[in-house]
């Protein structure tokens, strides 16, 4: 539809001739072949030009996605290849491990404000030029360039039962905490490390947001005698609404999609299966339990979750843009 409407624009040569209708009539009567060929190829050109991109997306994204969904309705092991309906999905929701993984996704969403507040607060301090802010700016960003495997290995040592952190705690009289061995603590330990490892990126986004902040407002607040908390609450946060929303969205995506490496290195899903996330569950079922169809079903559920989260985020961003 759109292509035909815009075609005159794409054919400026037409305007100098007898008119499109005349040419088309002649073409229909098998008139000059060159013109009709040109026309046809011009009409096809847009399709040809978008074809590679569309084919790549269809062949390498959509088609496998459909195969994956279709595969999730087949069985594993002896029932390999036969359709089993919703059995895999029933299995999943009966599996306490998978339910635990979904609960952990919920926990991540709940911890999101903390993950956003930390870089926001630190960026505020840097913006307000606390002593040594230049050093802090680079130091805070440093962990963001480390791979999750390295970060995980470092914190495995730090958080070991007989590791440095517990030694320090013992020094101030706090009993040793089994950071990665206590099911009530382990997930928070891993999320804490994830925040430590990734807040540098959010910090940079916040600093960029601060660059657009009107310093006259801050000065006015100071002249009026506002305290630091008041400045943050009444001046900085309202001015940075869009930045904060953007950081919320990107941090959420980061937490849901890039914690596999940390989990793999730090806890292997344990203790007692308390740090499973859907990604890790999928990997275990596919690779260790040899149940690819069940893993497909879990993938489909994760896909739906991400789709919902993604759509919500898009609407949030769109609304933020409109407010502007």
């Amino acid at each position: 539809m759109a292509i035909r409407d815009t075609s005159p624009l794409a054919r400026p040569a037409d305007s100098g001739r007898a008119g499109g209708g005349e040419i088309r009539r002649r073409a229909r009567h098998g008139g000059t072949g060159t013109i009709s060929r040109t026309l046809r190829s011009e009409r096809l050109a847009p399709f040809v030009l978008v074809a590679p991109a569309v084919l790549i997306i269809v062949a390498l994204r959509l088609w496998p996605l459909l195969l994956g969904v279709n595969f999730s309705f087949t069985g594993d092991g002896e029932r390999n290849g036969t359709m089993v309906g919703l059995d895999n999905y029933l299995d999943l929701f009966q599996d306490p491990l998978f339910r635990g993984a979904l609960r952990n996704v919920g926990l991540l969403v709940l911890l999101l404000p903390v993950a956003v507040a930390i870089p926001g607060l630190l960026a505020t301090f840097i913006y307000l030029r606390v002593p040594g802010h230049r050093v802090f700016r680079s130091v805070y960003f440093f962990p963001a360039v480390l791979s999750p495997v390295i970060v995980g290995a470092i914190f495995n040592l730090m958080l070991a039962f007989d590791g440095p952190l517990n030694t320090v705690l013992a020094g101030i009289g706090v009993g040793p905490i089994d950071w990665l061995g206590d099911p009530d603590v382990a997930m928070f330990a891993v999320v804490g490390v994830q925040i430590w490892a990734t807040f540098g990126m959010a910090l940079v986004v916040f600093l960029a947001g601060f660059a657009t902040l009107d310093s006259a407002l801050l000065d006015a607040a100071r002249v009026d005698g506002a305290s630091l908390p008041q400045i943050i609450w009444h001046v900085i946060i309202p001015s940075l609404t869009r930045t904060i929303q953007f950081v919320f969205v990107t941090t959420m995506i980061g937490m849901l999609t890039s914690m596999f490496g940390l989990l793999y290195v730090m806890t292997s899903g344990g203790p007692e299966g308390s740090t499973y996330l859907p990604e890790y569950y999928i990997w275990i079922q596919q690779g260790q339990m040899n149940r690819p169809a069940l893993a497909s079903a879990a993938s489909t559920i994760l896909f739906v979750i991400m789709l919902v989260v993604g759509l919500l985020q898009i609407s949030v961003l769109r609304r933020a843009g409109r407010e502007d």
Binding site: L60, W63, P64, L67, V69, N70, N80, G81, A293
Partner: peptide, 18 residues
Amino acid sequence: AILVAGLALAGCGSATRP
């Protein structure tokens, strides 16, 4: 080949055949 490539890219399960 298409299945394996798709599997690697989309990461959502794999396809079966006898």
